[in-house]
Write a protein that binds this DNA or RNA. Structure first.
Lengths: 344, 344
DNA sequence: AGTGTGCCTGAAAGCGCTTGCAGAATGCGC
DNA sequence: GCGCATTCTGCAAGCGCTTTCAGGCACACT
């Protein structure tokens, strides 16, 4: 049981009394091999518990069955749901997924791309809002461009601006607008928005989609009505507290993310404000758990797993003509118990 | 921009007019190199956007900076939380994580280990209950043994029986017992348990810890009080529906998993049974979201992220003496709003 | 001046595998 | 029974990198 090096193809070949080449061919099923030789090789391999060295295979020309996925935080239900879709498609195609969590550190994101590049991953998926930072964009492009030039596939979910690569894009703006419309229809006229950092494209799109629709109906959303906070459950929680200190008195709160809405709901409950009695609350994404909240959350349902699946598929299929493809997936407003007409 | 092969070290060396060896040494900082040569190499590398081929490096003897993690489903908040801990430690140590989701398919689990073995991952982490199946155990051992013999590290979270490897084990039995004690103290005497498949060690431990403690206090738990269902949110939901058709009339329900408890809570609400007014409900794990439910869920809090961190640390540090190490982490009962004394 | 002593640098040997190419073995037709 | 078309099989050339080993050079010492 002492640590000894791995079993190599050569040992298998020797033990089966055939050449390296033949052993390789048997194990890869490339060419026909006389059946008795084939049997000898197969049984030798299983006896020695042989596993090919994927590195050697990759080096020798075989293509690499791994793809890289970079997201902000696996434990965020939004990414978790997308990752689930990614995993399924990857699994179905016999691909191994290298998943990296950046914990929202732009620097790390680039570093991971570099590592994935070194691994010669056949594709890289970037999931979640990018950073709107000139410097960062350049550094990212400096990694991605050579990667793609070398034949690597890149696909992104939910970040449009920076990179011209295959993209799966949820219709944030339209979804938010539809939500605004539904909320107006319920009778609300005074809103507050719990937003994440404005520099994130996702936040921006949802926010402007929402406020533009409001404006179109003659309802103004001022800076005072917008509370900026971290893009997390705790951010939503804090945002409500902040909102309550302001003079604005909304009848309806829109959290740009379900995860933030979850924190918001708890903060409201703790503040003794009943939902939807005294205040309506809506989110965005339709993360699985929000239907189990009390009250269940009104939100814009995004096909999260599908986002992941489609992105993976884009990456696997590879780009044809050169133009990058953009796949837009629309969300759907789902009215649940957390919204109701405002109190008179 | 046509697809051309990757830039190699040789090109860098040529462009810097030094030998391959020197270029390699500069880029790895192994030996001192005259500073003018070093500069030439560095700038050549960056100009060509050179990235070392990790496969070649691995083949040539450098060790591989990747670890493999296998879990049932990334989108389950339980795994997501653990994965978060894993990711953090991995990131801090410059490791790339290959994450695989088996979707609870035993066959796939073994297949993934095999792929990870081929990748020469320096460590493999198995997260979540194993399968109690003689056949499966053998097949798994057949993969793992050669892997470890070849110097691979293996660590598991939360599965004791099958494999004698480094283990991080939450104290399921003790936690469940402590929960039982707390629930008894509230005055409950008639319980129901929503369990997952009995073949999972986790289910077994929690169930028996709970019922043994009950028995010790003279409260019997019969088979009729135990509802078996899938280990998911929907399983919990279905289990409550099933429970309500039975003649037993518990005052308190214990779901062996928070995720199941979430489904259970919704099912109870839809059945018009108030929690904790008419029925108390408790879970296990303390997944982040349960504190945001209404009412917040009473549960046994496990240090989920820490489970992941510790497992990763075990794997990184590697086994010394040969004996496998077992790290036990205890849970703590957290009483929240979902439990109350039973109605008289 | 002769010889050590260090420090760099480059040539070359692999790491384990795939695959083009040529040679061996087999089968067929005449 | 001979020649040739067909298969198989084995040799050997890499894939891109690390690392050992020896050679080169400058400098200091006797």
């Amino acid at each position: 049981m002492n640590a000894r090096p791995h079993v190599t193809l050569e040992e298998v070949a020797r033990s089966a009394r055939v050449s390296l080449a033949t052993a390789s061919r048997v194990l890869n099923g490339t060419t026909n091999v006389r059946s008795d030789l084939r049997d000898r090789v197969v049984s030798a391999a299983s006896e020695l518990a042989y596993t090919p060295n994927a590195h050697a295979q990759a080096l020798a020309g075989g293509s690499q069955p791994t793809v890289g996925v970079i997201c902000h935080d696996v434990s965020d239900p939004y990414f978790a749901a997308i990752a689930r879709g990614v995993m399924r498609v990857a699994g179905d195609n016999g691909l191994l997924v290298m998943l990296a969590s950046t914990f929202r550190d732009p620097h790390k994101e680039i570093e991971y791309v570099s590592m994935l590049r070194a691994q010669r991953a056949s594709a890289i998926l970037l999931i979640g809002s990018g950073f709107e930072d000139r410097h960062w964009e350049q550094a990212m492009a400096a990694e991605l461009d050579p990667y793609r030039r070398g034949g690597g596939q890149v696909a992104v979910v939910s970040r449009h601006r920076s990179l011209k690569v295959d993209t799966v894009q949820p219709e944030n703006r339209e979804g938010a607008a539809a939500l605004a419309k539904a909320l107006l229809k319920l009778g609300h006229r005074r809103f507050a928005v719990l937003a994440g950092p404005r520099s994130m494209t996702t936040v921006n799109d949802r926010l402007s989609g929402f406020s533009d629709e409001l404006a179109a109906k003659g309802v103004e959303l001022t800076e005072d009505d917008i509370v900026e906070a971290a893009f997390t459950r705790d951010g939503g929680y804090a945002a409500v507290q902040e909102m309550l200190t302001r003079k604005t008195k909304p009848t309806c709160v829109f959290a740009v993310t379900d995860v933030m809405a979850i924190g918001a709901l708890t903060a409201l409950r703790e503040a003794g404000i009943s939902v939807p009695g005294e205040m309506s609350l809506a989110g965005f994404d339709d993360v699985p758990v929000v239907r189990d909240l009390t009250p269940p959350l009104t939100t814009v349902a995004l096909p999260l797993e599908e986002l992941g699946e489609r992105a993976m598929e884009l990456a696997i299929k590879g780009a044809r003509g050169g133009r990058s493809r953009i796949l837009r997936l629309s969300g759907e407003v789902v009215l649940r118990g957390s919204t109701a007409p405002p109190k008179k």
